[in-house]
């Protein structure tokens, strides 16, 4: 007979593990990746590969030689960070800038806090914001979908949000700009310029549903986030349709869907209770609209999420679950 094993209850465990969660996110991102591959060609594959490899390698090196602990790269969290970082940049970004972005994302935003589970901010977003501030030109020249699959040199152009922001600043009205903005059906399937992961709304939604079914995310953050943006921009649109564009545009343009479904729901940096998640989602939504409409940047999703990441510990303290028997 074998030696019996002893432990406290429970003696069974659910199927879910950190590994399955992280690889689940990777699978959920696959449709969006395929769409970006279709539109941006081989350069999308190249920049994504650079991001993933550098993230994983940096994490491995830091764990092995700086922290001197067992490397845990197989849990897939570095892969997710790399993938999300790649999804947040234009495919025309030089590869060495991508490596710097990965270094900031993994090295500063994740490992310096102590690694998986201990970071305050979403690593991919920190990497993206660092790149955006350091290399603003490269980070804002968005390639329009390539005509030639194997072309590494794409034609660049501004994003829909950029066009809108500049146009409004120049004193034009929304209806005047409508002619140069892409139409909604193109935005929905992804026939627009933008970063890798934000072009196709439908692919992002498919991935989102997959994660919902796998119970990797709950509906609370995405719904409250997008819902807030819709309500907030909707009210402004109703007040002055000439100056403010309608909510549908806000949802489809820029990284709102990517942010709301994949970045804001990052387990580590989002609140833990349902109530807290809704507050967090609303906060993200309000910040996004504020930055988009009145801020200097045309796109506000990453800043909004990072700001709310900083508030997460407070939300966790303030919105505790309701104790049984206290009704």
């Amino acid at each position: 007979m074998n030696k019996l094993t002893l432990s406290g209850s429970p003696h069974v465990h659910s199927e879910m593990s950190v590994k399955s969660v992280m690889w689940g996110v990777v699978i959920a991102l696959a449709p969006a990746f395929l769409v970006s591959l279709w539109y941006f060609g081989i350069s999308a594959l190249f920049i994504t590969a650079v991001a993933i490899i550098s993230c994983v390698l940096i994490e491995f090196l830091i764990q092995k030689y700086l922290l001197k602990e067992e490397p845990s790269i197989s849990d897939g969290s570095a892969v997710v960070t790399g993938l999300l970082l790649a999804f947040n940049v234009p495919s025309s970004l030089p590869w060495w800038e991508m490596v710097i972005g990965s270094l900031v994302a993994i090295g500063i935003a994740k490992m310096s806090f102590g690694g998986l589970g201990k970071n305050i901010f979403n690593p991919a977003l920190v990497g993206r914001v660092f790149l955006l501030i350091s290399f603003p030109v490269d980070m804002t020249s968005w390639p329009v979908p390539a005509q030639n699959f194997f072309s590494l040199d794409a034609i660049t152009g501004p994003t829909a949000l950029g066009v809108l922001s500049e146009g409004i600043d120049a004193g034009k009205t929304v209806s005047e700009l409508a002619t140069i903005l892409p139409d909604y059906s193109n935005m929905f399937i992804g026939q627009i310029g933008g970063s890798l992961g934000e072009v196709s709304a439908i692919a992002l939604l498919i991935g989102g549903f997959y994660m919902l079914i796998r119970k990797i995310i709950t509906w609370h953050i995405p719904v409250s986030y997008i819902g807030t943006v819709v309500i907030f921009t909707g009210i402004m649109w109703l007040i002055d349709p000439a100056r403010y564009i309608d909510p549908v545009f806000h949802i489809l343009a820029g990284g709102l869907l990517l942010g709301a479904i994949y970045m804001a729901t990052d387990m580590v940096s989002s609140p833990m209770t349902y109530k807290g998640m809704i507050i967090y989602g609303v906060g993200c939504g309000v910040m996004t609209v504020l930055i988009r409409v009145w801020g200097a940047y045309p796109e506000g999703v990453s800043f909004a999420i990072l700001i709310m990441n900083a508030v997460t510990p407070l939300i966790n303290k303030g919105f505790k679950p309701v104790l049984f028997g206290n009704k």
């Binding site: 030696k3 019996l4 002893l6 432990s7 406290g8």
Partner: peptide, 18 residues
């Protein structure tokens, strides 16, 4: 060892358990 303990690394807990 006759059995194998597989739980939290805490003597206090193991002491209560077995």
């Amino acid at each position: 060892s006759k059995v194998q303990y597989d739980g939290a690394t805490s003597c206090a807990f193991a002491h209560n358990l077995f």
